[in-house]
């Protein structure tokens, strides 16, 4: 199905596929970049700024809206996130999209999936949203549908696998996410020399996230990350990762602190 006009189609008023509420899909993709949600008196949580158009009558309320207190209490466990989310309710069809990134829906059945916070667009209230222990990630638990964006189609891989931090979209079930450092590279004479002088460059791949165990790892092709949504500060307390900081900055949450000898992007471009 091509959404585009056929060349020279002078006979048709418009080449591309024209949608109306009857022909738009229900809770499915219109194309790779646009997702259509049908509301029949039901509710969806959605991130602000992701609704591009709708038919029908709908109401959008900030998550802090008093009437929604009960819903928020059962499904939304990320209070400091609240200002980024709205609840859509009513009846009709609405289109969701995010900066022309690929969007896809995922069904969870009594399951869990952890996803980079900037990638999550919308979810059904039958799912519970919680902050992950891993900074910058959110976990969805329960049964229901959610919609997420990715830079290019998402690729599903099975552990064991090592992943560039910036290519990680999320993971499902219980692989154990941990850091992996390429010690062979960082130590030894060359490693020391690089650390001291910055000469010789770095491969840029000294640090990965490692996943082992049963589950699925979701990958995207990117180094330009989707804007990190602040997951909110974690209450400070002993043993809570990331506690104490205010908002985790993108560079920290992405886990891309520069290692000694690893040069910036500008230098990379100029080959130094």
């Amino acid at each position: 199905m091509s959404p585009y006009g056929t060349p020279g189609g002078f006979g048709t008023p418009a080449g591309p596929t024209v949608f109306d509420p009857a022909t738009l899909p229900c809770d499915d993709n219109v194309n790779a970049y646009t997702f259509c949600v049908e509301l029949k008196g039901s509710q969806w949580f959605l991130q602000k700024g992701k609704m591009i158009a709708y038919y029908g009558s709908m109401e959008f309320n900030g998550v802090g809206h008093g009437r929604l207190d009960r819903l928020v209490r059962t499904s939304f466990h990320s209070p400091l996130h609240a200002s980024d989310w709205v609840v859509a309710e009513g009846s009709g069809k609405m289109l969701l999209a995010d900066r022309a990134f690929d969007v896809n829906s995922y069904d969870l059945e009594d399951g869990n999936l952890t996803i980079r916070s900037g990638n999550l667009l919308a979810f059904q209230p039958t799912l519970a949203l919680k902050q992950s222990i891993v900074p910058g990630f959110l976990t969805l638990i329960g049964t229901g549908k959610f919609v997420a964006a990715s830079n290019g189609p998402v690729v599903f891989m099975e552990p064991p696998i090592r992943v560039d931090p910036q290519a990680l979209v999320g993971w499902a079930d219980c692989p154990s996410p941990c850091h992996h450092y390429d010690h062979g590279y960082m130590t030894g004479v060359m490693g020391g020399l690089r650390a001291l002088t910055g000469l010789g460059g770095a491969s840029g791949e000294e640090h990965q996230f490692e996943f082992v165990g049963a589950g699925t790892v979701l990958l995207q092709s990117t180094e330009t990350l989707l804007a990190e949504q602040a997951t909110g500060a974690v209450p400070s307390g002993a043993g809570v990762p990331g506690a104490g900081g205010t908002h985790t900055s993108p560079s920290q949450t992405a886990g891309t602190q520069r290692l000694p000898g690893q040069l910036g992007d500008l230098q990379r471009r100029f080959g130094l």
């Binding site: 460059g201 791949e205 990958l219 180094e223 990379r268 080959g271």
Partner: peptide
């Protein structure tokens, strides 16, 4: 290119190419 690796399985090493 440096930074082009997204993920890998198995025993693979990435070494900067000193000789350019």
């Amino acid at each position: 290119q440096r930074g082009a690796m997204l993920a890998y399985k198995g025993d693979v090493s990435f070494t900067p190419n000193m000789a350019g």
